[in-house]
Simulated assay, not measured.
Amino acid sequence: MGVEIELSGARVRYGPLEALHGVDLAVPARALTVLLGRNGSGRTTALRALAGTVALAAGRVVWQGADVTRLPAHLRARRGLCLVPDTRAVHAGLTVADNLELAAPDADFTVALDGYPRLRPLLPRRAGTLSGGEQRMLAVSRALLRGARLVLLDEPTQGMSPPVADRTYDLLAELAREAAVVVAEQRLPPGRTAIVHHLRRGRVVFSGESPEFGDGSPR
């Protein structure tokens, strides 16, 4: 299993506060990776560092063997990176159909609507009028349509009902057959095989496969 992207000695500062303290983590190609931790652990910052939406104070981001530390986020997107943030992940003033069309200019929404049939009757609705869970469905759908080789999602199932959340991880597992998929979560998705990086106070305290992680405490 080759490495798609990695952080090496990554440090991120917000003013005088350091959010990541020399983090090393590798994301394999064509696999599901979970950045696990509580709020304030650094998992979201690590995700943003991979995406290029926060700058490193020290360390490197290496993507497919190339140093992209200084590459802006929009150029990483052009190279095949898709970020689904935890907030403002959809265009609120546009309809659901418009949001999907931006991700799939050929207007083929089949993957999105097969994945989330509940979106079909919502196509003419403005995205900003949807519930939180519906907006997350739309945001994940847009990621599914992009054909990206690296997909980063921050708490993708937030606000979803348990059945829809489970369906979402089915979709992400399917996507991970073709792309590197990285999610930032507070809890390990149940019943899923993944690479886990557990962060605590800006440091990685465990890296390994999900069965090794067990009930939440590194063995």
Score class of each variant (00 low, 15 high):
S161K: 12
G115N: 04
P211R: 15
E6V: 02
L150V: 13
A194D: 13
R126Q: 13
G42R: 00
Y169S: 10
V3F: 02
E174L: 14
L113D: 13
A49G: 02
H197K: 07
E185C: 06
A180E: 11
A66L: 13
A103M: 04
R60C: 04
Y14Q: 09
P121G: 01
R30A: 15
P124E: 12
G59K: 07
A176W: 00
G191L: 12
G80C: 10
L152R: 12
S207T: 14
Q135S: 12
H197F: 09
E178A: 15
V182C: 11
V23N: 00
L71F: 07
I195C: 15
G2H: 11
L50Y: 03
R30P: 01
L25K: 01
S41G: 07
A165P: 04
A19K: 02
A10G: 03
L100Q: 03
R149I: 01
V90T: 11
R187N: 09
V205F: 11
P117H: 12
W63S: 00
R126I: 13
R149T: 13
R149M: 06
T193E: 15
G191V: 10
D215I: 08
L50S: 00
G2C: 03
S207L: 01
M137H: 03
Y116N: 06
P189E: 09
T168L: 05
P163I: 12
P156H: 09
A46G: 03
L122E: 08
Q186D: 04
E155A: 14
A89Q: 01
L56I: 08
R201H: 10
P211D: 13
P190K: 11
E209W: 15
L36M: 08
A58C: 02
